Simulated scan of single mutants.
Amino acid sequence: MELLGQRWTLRVLWELEPGRLGFLELRRRMDNCSSSMLSVRLQHLQSAGLIVKNADKSYELTTAGTELGTALHAVWDWSRRWGAALTDPNDGTV
């Protein structure tokens, strides 16, 4: 949970969910994340066994990373259902 709470970690996992990406393409998708920060996050995710760096220097999710992605999709679905209601103090449904 500590790793998932670090800035940019969930975004890296989200971007890798559809399939493998090289560093430059991943960096392009990460908006304001610096190259050095992205490198650190990739190293941490590799150490945790959530992603792997391939021989062609692309990155992809491991089986554990893919399973985590499934859990993250459930959170995404929940946020789309409840996000507006939870941020609107005038909505009495919460």
Rank of each mutant, 00 (worst) to 15 (best):
L3K: 05
L4V: 13
Q6S: 13
R7S: 13
R11A: 15
L13E: 07
L13S: 10
W14G: 05
E15K: 15
E17W: 11
P18D: 12
P18F: 05
P18Y: 09
G19V: 15
R20C: 07
R20M: 07
L24S: 15
L26M: 06
R27I: 04
R28N: 13
R28F: 13
M30V: 05
M30A: 15
D31V: 10
D31L: 13
C33Y: 08
S34M: 06
S35N: 10
S35P: 00
S36D: 09
L38W: 08
L38R: 05
L38Q: 08
L38S: 07
S39W: 02
S39E: 09
S39I: 01
V40A: 10
R41I: 15
R41M: 13
Q46G: 11
Q46E: 15
S47V: 01
S47R: 12
S47N: 12
A48P: 05
G49Q: 07
I51Q: 11
V52W: 11
K53A: 08
A55I: 14
D56K: 04
K57I: 12
S58P: 08
Y59I: 06
Y59T: 09
E60A: 10
E60K: 12
E60N: 10
L61M: 00
L61Q: 04
T62M: 06
T63M: 01
E67I: 03
E67M: 06
L68V: 05
T70D: 05
L72Y: 01
A74G: 08
A74D: 06
A74T: 04
V75W: 02
W78T: 02
S79P: 00
R80T: 01
R81A: 09
W82R: 04
G83E: 05
A84W: 00
A84Q: 02
A84N: 01
A84V: 04
A85P: 03
D88E: 03
D91T: 07
D91N: 14
G92N: 12
G92R: 13
T93A: 07
T93N: 03
V94M: 08
